[in-house]
């Protein structure tokens, strides 16, 4: 299970570490605080999500579904934090980002194209609602 077969070139790239040597000390020490901080922000935003659900945005903006939209925006923000910091997507290799772009595009397609179904249903083919 050694990695000694890797050509010296790679080590020069700085991509790998010698088996025993402590690596990137300083950098990670710095991050520890950041991780706790992000955890704290996430907890605060959980509280905010709960609080927001008590506010009747539909009344406020005279519309429909605003609470859902705002709730989802907050959730998306939290998810971005988890992704960027905990999952190290900030500064992650372009290859991983490429996978993500494609995946997100296809999920979006799945969501929105299936919903097109409700855009102009042919009369009498879906049951009435609203």
């Amino acid at each position: 299970m050694s990695q000694s077969h890797d050509h010296g070139k790679e080590v020069a790239h700085g991509a790998s570490h010698d088996s025993g040597a402590p690596a990137d000390h300083a950098q990670h020490d710095m991050h520890l605080g950041l991780y706790w901080g992000i955890g704290g922000v996430l907890v605060v935003f959980t509280a905010i999500t709960v609080w927001l659900s008590y506010v009747d945005f539909d009344k406020m903006f005279a519309g429909h579904g605003w609470n859902i939209i705002i709730g989802m925006i907050v959730a998306t923000f939290k998810v971005c934090l988890v992704g960027a910091i905990f999952m190290h997507l900030k500064g992650e290799k372009p290859l991983v980002w490429k996978f993500l772009y494609f995946t997100l595009f296809f999920v979006a397609g799945l969501f929105f194209l299936t919903l097109l179904h409700y855009v102009d249903p042919i009369f009498g083919t879906t049951h009435a609602h609203h």
Binding site: M1, Q3, D6, K9, E10, H13, A15, S16, K93, L95, V96
Partner: peptide
């Protein structure tokens, strides 16, 4: 590349 990254992908 089980342990160390492949240089061109960095993973």
């Amino acid at each position: 590349h089980e342990v160390t990254a492949r240089p061109d992908t960095g993973l």
